[in-house]
Amino acid sequence: MVKTEKAYDQAIELLKNDNVRITKQRTRMLDYLFNKRDFYVPITEIDHQLRKEFNRMSYETVYRNVEMLEELHVVETRMFNNGMRAKYQCDFDNVDHSHFICENCGRVVELDKPDMGSVRDKLPGFEIDSQHYEVIGLCDACVKDVRE
């Protein structure tokens, strides 16, 4: 099985283990985010896509489901200048991760973890439980768009 399929199956299992009903709407939300797993997707875009299929679904329902998925570590959310965005967390074996985030389009590129030696040197006697390293800027496509 491909790693990404494994991650999707793990997300469904997390929902089942937490006694969350696997509804068509939730499955479609997961599918949508899974297919855009390299981007932070605006919540409004998720809402727009889901309401095409489920016209009675409210923005509040979409937002509540995103919050619930975040609590289960299935998605990550982040506030951008133009609003809240969500990203499928596709590596359940690597919760402590590092990445580049494009502040314009939301593209995410996974990075190797930085050397923590200098950080530990500055924190003698401290115990580090986790690390999260982000580099934020414009991706190559957005830089190109800005220059044209």
Rank of each mutant, 00 (worst) to 15 (best):
R107Q: 13
N19V: 10
T4R: 01
Q25W: 00
E71N: 14
E110P: 02
V135W: 02
Y40F: 13
E5A: 15
M1C: 13
F80S: 09
E103I: 12
F92Q: 06
N82Y: 11
E5V: 14
V95I: 12
C105A: 11
C139H: 03
E103R: 08
V2H: 14
M79S: 14
S130N: 11
Q89M: 07
Y88P: 00
Y133R: 05
M84S: 11
C105G: 08
M29T: 07
N82L: 13
K87A: 13
T27M: 05
R120I: 15
T4V: 04
E5G: 06
C139D: 05
L14H: 07
F80W: 05
D96H: 05
P124F: 06
D112F: 12
D112V: 13
Y59D: 11
D140L: 07
R28L: 06
V108C: 00
K113V: 12
A86F: 00
Y32G: 03
D91T: 10
I136N: 10
M1L: 10
R21Q: 12
E53W: 02
D9W: 02
L30Q: 02
I22Y: 01
P114D: 07
I43Q: 05
E70L: 02
M57S: 10
R64L: 10
L14G: 03
Q10F: 03
V95D: 06
V66D: 01
Y40H: 01
D18S: 15
T4M: 02
M68V: 10
V95Q: 05
A141V: 15
E134W: 04
P42M: 09
D121W: 04
T44Q: 08
R120W: 06
R51K: 15
D112Y: 11
V74I: 15
Q10A: 12
Y133H: 13
R107N: 14
E53Y: 04
R37G: 07
D38F: 04
M79K: 11
V62C: 05
F54W: 02
Q89D: 10
E5N: 11
T23Q: 01
E67H: 10
L111M: 15
D112K: 14
D112A: 14
T23A: 04
Y40L: 02
V75A: 03
E13K: 14
C90T: 06
Y32P: 01
E76W: 03
V108P: 00
D112L: 11
R28Q: 07
Q10R: 08
Q25P: 03
E76D: 14
D96T: 08
Q49P: 03
D9M: 11
S118Q: 11
M1A: 15
V41H: 00
N17F: 01
K36V: 03
D112E: 15
C102I: 08
D129I: 13
M1Y: 08
L111R: 09
V108A: 00
A11F: 00
L15G: 04
R28A: 12
S130H: 09
I12C: 06
N35K: 10
D9Y: 06
T27F: 03
F80D: 07
V119L: 08
E53F: 02
A11N: 02
A7Q: 03
T23C: 04
N82Q: 15
P124W: 05
G106M: 01
V62T: 10
D121L: 14
N82W: 10
E76M: 08
Q10K: 11
Y63V: 07
F100W: 05
I136H: 05
